[in-house]
Design a protein around this nucleic acid. Structure first.
Lengths: 231, 231
DNA sequence: ACCTGAACACCGTTCAAGT
DNA sequence: ACCTGAACACCGTTCAAGT
C-alpha cells in the first residue's frame, strides 16, 4: 500500500509553475490555438493551469481584459520597419510592409483576428505600432488629423479582413454561407451580383488585403493638405 | 373561488400570436434594443415569446443563423440611391449616400453593428445592396475584379467603424479604455502617440467615417485600369 | 496576498414526449 | 408539423473560507 500520508499537494510539485499574468496569457493563447474561439473560456484556461476558475480573478478583472491582453501579447510579433529617412525604400512601401506583418500576425493563430475585432487593443504593443504608423504617415506628408484617423482606418481594416479571412463561417457542405447564397442568386433579379458571383469570393486574403492597402494608402496620400499648402 | 376548470392554455389567448420566423426575428431585435448585445440570448427571445427555448429550433438551425437573419432584416432599412445615369449627381456621391445610410442603419440599433461584424450577412437585403454597389462602382469605371473587392472593402469598413463607434468599451470612470491608455503614454517613449493623443480619439463617428469613405472611394477610383486601357 | 471549492445565475442545444 | 419541459454540458463571476 502506498503511504498516503506522504502525498503532497499538486501545487508543491516541481513541474507546477506558479500563477502569473504571463503564464495565464500564454496558456490562454495555447487554449485558443488548440480549441479555437468557441473553445476559449476562463474555465478552460483555469483547467489547463490546473486550478479553479476563481484563481484567475486575482490577476484579471474579467474575460474581456484577458482577451485584450492576449491580443496585445500576440501583437508583439509584428515587425516594424526602419523609421525616419534611414531607409531608401519609400514610406508607403514600408507602411505596407508593417501592415502586412500585422495582417499575417493576426492570421497566424486561428481565432486571434476575431478576438482583436471584438476588443479594443490598446496595450503597449498596440501603442508601439501606432507610433510607427504615425511616423510613416507623417513622413508621407499626411497632415495630423488625417494621420491619426489613418492609423485607425488602417489597423481596423487589416483586423477586419484578417477576421473575415479566418472566420469558421459555419461551412455547410464544404461551401461557405456566402458562396451558397451567391449560387442561388437569380440573374434576373440581381444581374450584377450574378455576373460577379465568382469575383465576389475570388482571390486570396493576402491579394485582397494587399490591394486594399494600396487603395487606402493611395487614398490617404492623395487627400488634399488642409494646412501646410501655399499661404 | 375561481373556477379553475375554466382556465384555458395561455397559447389559446387571443393576444398570443403564433410562432414564425418573422416574429422571432422582430422579437430578437426588440430584445437587442432593450438588453443590448450581452443580453441577447435564445432563451431571452423565447421568454419574450412566452415559450421555451426549444421551440425556436423549429425555425432556426442555431443562434448564428438568428444573428444573420437579424442583421439582414435590419439592412432592409438601407436606402438605395437611383441607379444608372438617371441621376445628375456623380456616381461617387450616390455611392457615399448609400454607405452613409448603411452606416446609420447599423448605428440606429445599439449592438447591431457588433452583430453584423460577427456574422457574415448574405441574405436578400445584403444582396440587394451589393447589386447597387456594383452598379455604382461600374458606373465609376472601376474594373470587374476591383469592383467586387470594393464591395467587400466598403461594407466591411463601414460595418467595422459602426461597431467601433457603438462599442460599450467597458467605460472605466467615464473614460474609454483607449483614452485611459493614451493618457498614460510617456512623451519620451512614444513622442508621436503622445503628441497625437487628442487627434487619435477626436472626431465624431460620422466625420471619421465620411473621411474614410472619401479615402477609400477616391483610392478605388484612382486605381489603374487593368484591362480597358489603350492596347 | 494568493489561492480555492462551491455556489449562483445564467448559456446553447438536444431529446423524448405531447398535440 | 409544431410545440414543449426537462435535461445535458457548459458558461462568467462572486464569495466565504483557507493558507
Amino acid at each position: 500500500m502506498a503511504d498516503r500520508t506522504k502525498v503532497v499537494s499538486r501545487r508543491m510539485r516541481p513541474a507546477k509553475s506558479p500563477l502569473s499574468l504571463e503564464v495565464i496569457i500564454s496558456t490562454a493563447l495555447d487554449v485558443l490555438a488548440k480549441d479555437g474561439t468557441a473553445g476559449l473560456s476562463l474555465r478552460r484556461v483555469a483547467t489547463a493551469l490546473d486550478t479553479g476558475p476563481a484563481s484567475l480573478y486575482v490577476y484579471l478583472e474579467n474575460l474581456d481584459e484577458l482577451h485584450a491582453l492576449m491580443v496585445d501579447q500576440a501583437l508583439a510579433a509584428v515587425r516594424l520597419p526602419k523609421a525616419g529617412g534611414a531607409s531608401r525604400r519609400p514610406w508607403s512601401s514600408r507602411l505596407k510592409a508593417l501592415l502586412r506583418s500585422y495582417f499575417s500576425t493576426l492570421c497566424k493563430r486561428p481565432g486571434l483576428a476575431e478576438l482583436a475585432l471584438s476588443t479594443i487593443a490598446c496595450g503597449p504593443n498596440s501603442i508601439r505600432i501606432w507610433e510607427r504608423l504615425l511616423d510613416l504617415l507623417k513622413e508621407g506628408g499626411v497632415d495630423d488629423t488625417r494621420a491619426a484617423w489613418g492609423v485607425d482606418l488602417l489597423t481596423l481594416y487589416v483586423t477586419a479582413i484578417a477576421a473575415e479571412q479566418s472566420h469558421p463561417d459555419a461551412k455547410v457542405d464544404g461551401l461557405s454561407r456566402v458562396k451558397k447564397a451567391l449560387s442561388t442568386v437569380s440573374a434576373d433579379a440581381f444581374p450584377l451580383v450574378f455576373a460577379f458571383r465568382e469575383a465576389l469570393t475570388s482571390g486570396s486574403g493576402e491579394a485582397r488585403s494587399d490591394w486594399a492597402l494600396d487603395v487606402i494608402i493611395g487614398g490617404i496620400a492623395a487627400q488634399p493638405r488642409t494646412k501646410d499648402d501655399n499661404p
